[in-house]
Computed example of a mutant assay.
Amino acid sequence: MANRKDTTVRRANRVRRHLKAVANGRPRLSVHRSSKNIYVQVIDDVAGKTLAAASTLDTGLRGDLKTGADVAAASAVGKLIAERAKAAGVTEVVFDRGAFLYHGRVKALAEAAREGGLTF
């Protein structure tokens, strides 16, 4: 029987495999959440480069947030990544939730990024 880590890695790989099939050259907005913080990157898989990144550990956000592990923090990170991606010339992405359910903090980040101007 597979352990929990193997199951999580398999789920993340399954999601990424599907995204790369439908991406059509668009960069990937990859989300990772831990118990204390949330991290997001805009990745160009063709070139293998990170175009923009943001997290609750950024100095501009850290002082404004009560904690890095709530919906408000995820929303702030979503707005920040949208600004940074637009500055890098990216407006269309595919959303990579990894092994995380589209619920709670991940959903709040995605909605804030959409409000900030990213299309996915």
Rank of each mutant, 00 (worst) to 15 (best):
L65P: 03
L65D: 06
K66F: 03
K66S: 14
T67N: 09
A69T: 08
A69W: 06
A69F: 08
D70N: 15
D70Y: 02
D70H: 04
D70L: 10
A72H: 09
A74I: 02
A74P: 01
A76S: 10
V77K: 03
V77T: 04
G78T: 02
K79T: 14
L80E: 15
L80T: 14
L80F: 12
L80Q: 14
I81K: 03
I81Q: 05
I81M: 06
A82G: 08
A82Y: 00
R84G: 10
R84C: 01
R84A: 07
A85T: 03
A85P: 07
A85V: 04
K86R: 15
A87K: 15
A87F: 05
A87M: 03
A88C: 09
G89R: 03
G89D: 10
V90D: 06
V90C: 04
T91Y: 07
E92W: 03
V93I: 15
V93K: 02
V93Q: 07
V94D: 02
V94F: 01
F95Q: 09
F95V: 15
D96W: 05
D96V: 03
R97C: 08
R97M: 02
R97E: 00
R97V: 09
G98C: 13
G98E: 07
G98V: 11
L101C: 00
L101N: 12
L101Y: 10
L101M: 12
Y102G: 09
Y102H: 14
G104P: 06
